[in-house]
Amino acid sequence: MIKTDTKRDTAFVVCCYIFVALLMVVTFYPFWDLFILSISPRSEALKPGLRLFTSAPTLEAYRSVFESNEIIRSFWNSLVRVVLGTALSLGLTALTAYPLSKRDMPFNKGVTFIILFTMIFSGGMIPGYLLIKDLHIMNTIWALILPSAVTAYNLIIMRNFIEGLPPSLEESARIDGASYFTIWYKIVLPLSKPVLATVMLWIAVAHWNNYFDAMIYMHDRSKFTLPVVLRRILLENELDKYLPAGVVDTGTAPQTPETTKGAIVMVSTIPIICVYPFIQKYFTKGVMLGAVKG
């Protein structure tokens, strides 16, 4: 690009850098605080005020998280859920969003409204459970994947992006006699990479974090997902150490619940954060043109 910045432009850019830098500090702090908390001994974990470092780091909290062999099993379950769920959900969302972007299509408005309605109204937990039961998908991965496979929110975002694509490419393809499906596959999808990446991130994070459906629909312990197991570990550590006789623990001084919370956030967040850099590359400028030319 040509060097064109005036003095005022340069000042503006510097301001942008400062703004972003400050924001980085402010948004990184809570994460750092939690990380330090997760490796702090009890005495420091319970100190009020800012946490910047700890004098006696300990991995005790992580040990308590990883000693359960349920962790590996549930990590695998979560991974299957995320991969399978995201693939199915993203594919279906993209497939459904394309026809919806054709506003001249008869019934388009009606269908859009039917879909939008589900974003605002939902039937509730108990009928949802009965449905899963009647479909005989209780205790299977489908109970976690199918109900949320197509959501109104993702559909509308994707449809709007597709609507904004330059129509010229599609029209020339139509003239060449390409079918809608071919256009969708060969032209629309490659051009929609940024929005596909965004929606994929949303879907993957939702599948990674949701615990409530897994807890209600998965009756076998061996099918629990990671958030369900982590939540359980957290709650166990949160319990009052004073409990009726018979459930008294051993004499080892435990870490505080706060420390475990920190460790659990780290364990559950870091894998999903690793996904982001792969998605980011679709957010760079001109990615769409590149896709067209390539």
Binding site: A245, V248, T250
Partner: peptide, 25 residues
Amino acid sequence: AYVDLYADDVNKQAQFGSRMLGATP
């Protein structure tokens, strides 16, 4: 006081089930 000898091994403890009837003491 009662001390669970499997308290240090969560996997063994989960299998042994000494906390199973905790709600019904």
